[in-house]
Design a protein around this nucleic acid. Sequence first.
DNA 1: CCCAAAACTAAACGAGTGTTTAGTTATTTT
DNA 2: AAAATAACTAAACACTCGTTTAGTTTTGGG
Lengths: 187, 187
Amino acid sequence: MARKKEYNEEEVVEKAMELFWRNGYENTSMQMLEKEMGINKFSIYSSFGSKNGLFLESLKCYKQRLSTLMSKLENSSDGLLSIKHYFYDFLEFSKDNELSKGCLVTNAANELGETPDVEIQEALVQFTNGVKQLFTTILKQDSEKNELIVEAQADYLLIAMYGLSSASRVFTAIQLENYIEHTFKNL
Amino acid sequence: MARKKEYNEEEVVEKAMELFWRNGYENTSMQMLEKEMGINKFSIYSSFGSKNGLFLESLKCYKQRLSTLMSKLENSSDGLLSIKHYFYDFLEFSKDNELSKGCLVTNAANELGETPDVEIQEALVQFTNGVKQLFTTILKQDSEKNELIVEAQADYLLIAMYGLSSASRVFTAIQLENYIEHTFKNL
DNA sequence: CCCAAAACTAAACGAGTGTTTAGTTATTTT
DNA sequence: AAAATAACTAAACACTCGTTTAGTTTTGGG
């Protein structure tokens, strides 16, 4: 061992995540990351290998931040109502000034090109599956629903959540609240 | 007058639109446009001024293509049911192999950075307003609904459409159909 | 017929991208 | 204290981007 790192990797990746979240992957340059993270490009590459690697690490960090909301949902027993609360919690979670930053995962999915990076795509699929799984578990609390209905409703809510994440960057808080209320009226 | 153009501007802008639609704005380079449009960069710049100008022209072209679906909706009298058909028509309209290209406008909105081009942003807002206006008109066909309900439902459907456009690039046809059915269940 | 004007080709531009490479500084260990 | 090793700084890398420019070819009007 020789010299010690002057920065904490967990701390700087959090700052990177914040930047990716606000600007998306492509619109976030290494220059911006350098400045925001407060460390040199060399240090970024030595710690994370590449911009892609840094983004993947940011995704992990994002999941962790979101896990507060998800475990709140996981531990609730109000069925559908708690999922609705999760929707509202997410809006609060993603707030940035008056508008929303959306969801880091959804944002990344939305800017995927024709030949997306395979690691990133895999991370997105896994994340999506996790959310759907969580919805499924909660929906099963309503014991009268059969499995097919649960599956269909989970898919519906998953896409609704995906849509909400994307739309939250564009529409007003009132419109989004109205969307959520209508979304759960249909179940 | 001197030499005549060897290409038709309407034809080449259609090809550009197709490329933007598939890849998004940032992921479409002038090189790709050159190749797809079959004309030299110089010609592109002489006809459209800039990549931005070409994209704005592509947006017009896209609106025109979509206007087939929109006037079908405009001329229908089934109220909500015809809006639902519009949702399905859009999925067919945006189909690309098994997946969907989404909506050119929504895709552009999704990749807007912190300081978006003002002309593009204006075009997107106008487009969105047009769709909402159309939904409102159709919803008013149900004479029993008061104005507040119409407004709220139009907003709801607008965001649902926005979400569907974004999600259509990721989810399967079955999931999307399920989403549409749930969306219109209790209106 | 010729000249001017417009459209073409192709190369180069400067700026910005993600990434790498020298060279220097600091710290630990022998 | 000296040697070794890892982290730092800063410059340069190769590449791509959108855009421009210089030079050539085509064509229509006087």
